[in-house]
């Protein structure tokens, strides 16, 4: 079996690629997830003036190919080499992995902000009023009512965004990051063994499917108070 031989010869490299792909996606999504909540709040409740730069940022990210964004940061930083060197940041931008994580974080943050904004705006006003009525401070209302609800509502869409990010992370191979796609291209260019693409496809699908399952488990936990049996006497 040619397929099995290909796997037997190349599995260490492929596994290494999977690790890099997961690192790219995980770091990018995590950094974006840390920046998204305050931005989403601003986007949902901020004044028009405060929202303007945020809207432009989101529109730009959504309106340009992520490959172009990656080139803009990775190659574009070369134009500011002297300035970056004096700031001590040149070492960071010279590494394609760092640039890829930075771009994925900036990109995903725009999408996550919009998704979370939708979640925040979908929280029932009565819940917020109830919180205020029992004397919760603004911050407590956000922490205990708005965000828990918003995340539960936005959860499936956030999962989709992370899957899109994982697929987009394959683009890092174009700037010489050896993620799963990069390893696959490297193996193909040396052996012209086409079956390596089959294994790359299998691994990407396996990652996507495992992620979907994990995400659903988490979703069930997030909404466990809503899926249970209706208490007796309550209709």
């Amino acid at each position: 079996m040619a397929l099995i031989d290909t796997l037997a010869q190349n599995w260490p490299k492929l596994i290494d690629g999977v690790g890099t792909t997961l690192a790219l996606t995980g770091l990018g999504a995590l950094i974006a997830a840390m920046a998204a909540p305050p931005l989403a709040l601003l986007r949902a409740q901020g004044s028009a003036l405060a929202q303007a730069p945020l809207r432009i940022y989101i529109s730009f990210i959504r309106g340009t190919p992520i490959l172009a964004q990656l080139f803009l940061v990775f190659y574009g930083s070369g134009q500011f080499r002297v300035e970056l060197q004096s700031l001590g940041l040149w070492g960071f931008f010279r590494d394609p992995f760092n640039c890829a994580v930075l771009v994925f974080a900036i990109n995903s943050c725009a999408y996550q902000t919009e998704i979370l904004r939708g979640g925040i705006q979908a929280v029932a006003p009565g819940e917020i009023e109830a919180g205020r009525a029992i004397g919760m401070s603004r911050l407590t209302v956000l922490r205990r009512i708005v965000f828990p609800h918003a995340y539960r509502i936005a959860w499936p869409a956030l999962g989709n965004e992370i899957i899109l990010l994982m697929k987009a992370s394959a683009l890092a191979s174009v700037v010489t990051v050896f993620d799963l796609m990069g390893r696959t291209r490297q193996i193909f260019s040396r052996s012209f063994d086409f079956s390596i693409y089959f294994w790359a496809a299998v691994l990407y699908l396996a990652m996507t499917i495992s992620f979907v399952l994990l995400w659903r488990l988490a979703e069930r936990r997030l909404s466990r108070h809503m899926t249970g049996q209706t208490p007796q006497g309550v209709q």
Partner: peptide, 12 residues
């Protein structure tokens, strides 16, 4: 299948 694969992999 097609929605799960990176576009660049399909292209290659």
């Amino acid at each position: 299948l097609m929605r799960g694969l990176p576009e660049i992999l399909t292209l290659f």
